[in-house]
Design a protein around this nucleic acid. Structure first.
Lengths: 224, 224
DNA sequence: CGGTAAACGGATTAGGCGTATCCGGTTACC
DNA sequence: GGTAACCGGATACGCCTAATCCGTTTACCG
């Protein structure tokens, strides 16, 4: 990783702590999103706050370091999808796989959702991904497997639509979002108009209620 | 409205200001969501903060007062939908109309999305709405116009899925969410499997980018 | 009218939260 | 074994929101 360059190497303890911090950040970003503070990260890494601020000027520096690799993973998924022959499978695999990644990593989710976040390196990767999506859609279009009025930007919005579902059902029915993705895909696919079996049963009303209640908890405190 | 009860009536200026505050709150909640402060509301109403706190103990008191009526409007929509003969139109009208209401009123949106918000009065209305949705779905089910595996709680999650789309495209392409609602409805309807013409064209990539960027602005500052 | 309780405005206090610094003590390493 | 690098975490700072307090103004009853 981009630990030390031409700089004189860090002292042993320092570089160990740097790794610890990075690990902690990776974990916390994934679990709680980019909202965590450098102090959180420091404590989770088992080091003092001072140490954290000595290694990284601020949180953004960690974010940029960490999410370049994550975003590149998304790019890789898009490229792999383009190697798939069946254009429908290619497109939907991309959606399904990236959504799964986003599900496992709240931070990645936020990065993908908000172009404001991240430095130029991140922006670069984002700019590399966009045309891949265009291509995925174009192929599907040409093969006549998606409705003709489906557009590349629809992919983005579909991804963002799954967010609230993921977030509210995360620890009640983790895969529920796939159910709604299926609804959408069935509303888009044009080579067959049959219903795809749903991957996940619906929630009953009590569970739905508790899911809706559970989320927010953190967010609500702010919003109120 | 529930201005004064058995209490001695408010002095004229006081009751005028009370109305002003309520109006301001209605407007600000709709426009900016429940996050606005009592201070915001007071200034927007053209009165001092003190006046606001004299009339209402805290923000929740205003919220409860105001959103009971808004939620009852949602209930009314559900009841009207149940009077519609065509069960498909009934169900989709309910969805479309309530989504439109949520679109016009961020506060209502939050209330509907988060069962934690609001007092018992609000909870009561919510509990009155739930069975109406169940009935809407049951009818559609029985008439065979929705796929057999569609469940009442799906309605809720579909509503919440539209939220991020609404929020990010609000001032760029206000009705874009209807496009995605159409995808979903087309993925759910079983009496015909033809595509419904899309009510809104897709965004181009620049507009999408600027939409994604624009939102957050407020939210991002917190999350970061 | 005129007096008084009611109401007003908004500066101000209180407190939570995240960021970033500072410094006395510790440790790696030549 | 000495010194520069590093450590920890208490602490200062800034920002934001909630809520109060009090000197001034106003409605309204007799």
């Amino acid at each position: 990783m981009a630990a030390n360059d031409a700089e004189r190497p860090l002292r042993k303890d320092a570089s160990i702590n740097r790794e610890r911090l990075l690990d902690a950040a990776r974990e916390l970003f994934a679990e709680k999103g980019l909202g965590v503070t450098l102090n959180d990260i420091a404590h989770h890494a088992g080091v003092g706050v001072g140490t954290a601020y000595r290694r990284f000027a601020n949180k953004d520096e960690i974010i940029d370091t960490l999410f370049e690799e994550r975003l590149e993973a998304v790019e890789a998924v898009a490229r792999e999808a383009l190697e798939e022959d069946d254009p429908w499978i290619a497109l939907t695999d991309y959606l399904r796989r990236t959504l799964k990644m986003q599900f496992g990593d709240r931070g990645l989710h936020q990065i993908l959702d908000d172009p404001t976040l991240g430095d130029e390196r991140i922006g670069d990767v984002r700019r590399r991904i966009a045309p891949l999506i265009v291509e995925l859609v174009r192929r599907a279009q040409e093969a006549g497997v998606v409705r003709h009025d489906f557009a590349p930007t629809d992919v983005t919005f579909i991804q963002s639509a799954m967010a609230p579902i993921m977030n509210s059902t995360r620890d009640v029915a983790p895969e529920l979002y796939e159910r709604y993705l299926t609804f959408i895909l069935d509303g888009i696919r044009s080579d067959t108009r049959e219903f795809t079996p749903l991957p996940t049963p619906a929630l009953n009303s009590e569970t739905t209620h508790s899911a809706m209640t559970r989320k927010r908890r953190a967010a609500a405190r702010r919003a109120r």
